[in-house]
Amino acid sequence: MSGAALGLVVLATVTSRFLDRHFAEFMSAKILALATFALATYVAHGRAVGEVSAIFQIDASALPHATTAASAMVIATWIYLAAVLPILIDSAVLMLYYYGKSEGGNAMIAFAILISSVLWAGLLNFQAMPAHARKSNLYQIALEMDFNKRSHCSGLPADSEGVVFLGPDQRRATVAPRLVEIKRSSRTIFKQVQVPENFDIVNCP
């Protein structure tokens, strides 16, 4: 995980310097980039809302952290296709080119970018892109950050993982049943868990 985070920092730094070098004098390019990012964020949020609502069968606005995480995963998937893979391929080619030219310094820089790209690509492949992994990860994020572990609701199972209140009056809530772990893997920061197909609704007097 730390290696993938380092890879993200390296990629962000390289991209930032490239943009500063080539587009600093072109305000229209900056405006276009911001508009594109805003549009991508809007579309990603729309997809995330649908994905979270499908998992929990409630309005995604009740699960803001899970929805934000889903948006980030959607954007990360697009970045993987649009930037990470091209950077990975280009850095591999440049590393071989500079190595053949006996330019050790440039070859090492290209190698560092290549390793960072591989780590970042691996993180996305195992965390954000497979549907089952993303669903499991979003469920765990919601349990930790959106579900309330303490409530006054009646009829809660003793082993429930928490509730999310429905509506501003908080008189009803959806219940997360006991967490069932399927397996752990060193390839993911989350364990793989069973995502319930249905969630019970309880009254909260």
Rank of each mutant, 00 (worst) to 15 (best):
A173C: 11
V175P: 00
E144T: 11
A66G: 03
L166H: 06
D159R: 10
V164N: 03
A131M: 06
A158G: 14
T36W: 11
L124Y: 09
N125E: 12
V43A: 10
Q140S: 08
I79A: 10
V49W: 06
P130D: 04
G122E: 01
T41R: 14
L156A: 05
A60P: 07
M73R: 08
H65K: 12
N137H: 09
S117C: 02
Q140W: 02
R134N: 05
L119H: 06
K149P: 02
L119F: 11
S91T: 03
A62L: 08
A44S: 11
L138I: 11
S61Y: 09
I58N: 09
T174R: 09
G162V: 07
Y80L: 10
I55Q: 03
N148M: 14
H45P: 04
Y80P: 05
A83N: 09
D169V: 13
V74R: 09
A83I: 11
A44R: 02
L124W: 05
Y99N: 11
I87E: 02
F126Q: 13
A133G: 02
L156K: 05
I115P: 00
A76K: 08
A72E: 15
T36G: 15
A128M: 10
A82W: 10
H152A: 12
L96S: 08
A66H: 01
I87Q: 01
M108D: 12
T68K: 10
D90P: 04
L96D: 03
A133R: 14
A54Y: 04
L143R: 07
P157V: 04
A60D: 05
G167I: 10
F111C: 00
I79V: 12
T36I: 14
A48W: 00
I113K: 00
C153S: 06
E144Y: 09
G122Q: 00
M95E: 07
L63K: 07
S160A: 13
D59S: 12
H152K: 11
E51W: 03
D59K: 10
A76T: 11
S61V: 13
G100V: 02
Q140L: 05
A69V: 04
E51I: 07
Y97T: 05
T77F: 09
I55T: 03
K149Y: 04
M145P: 01
V93A: 07
S136M: 08
Q170V: 06
Y139M: 05
A107S: 09
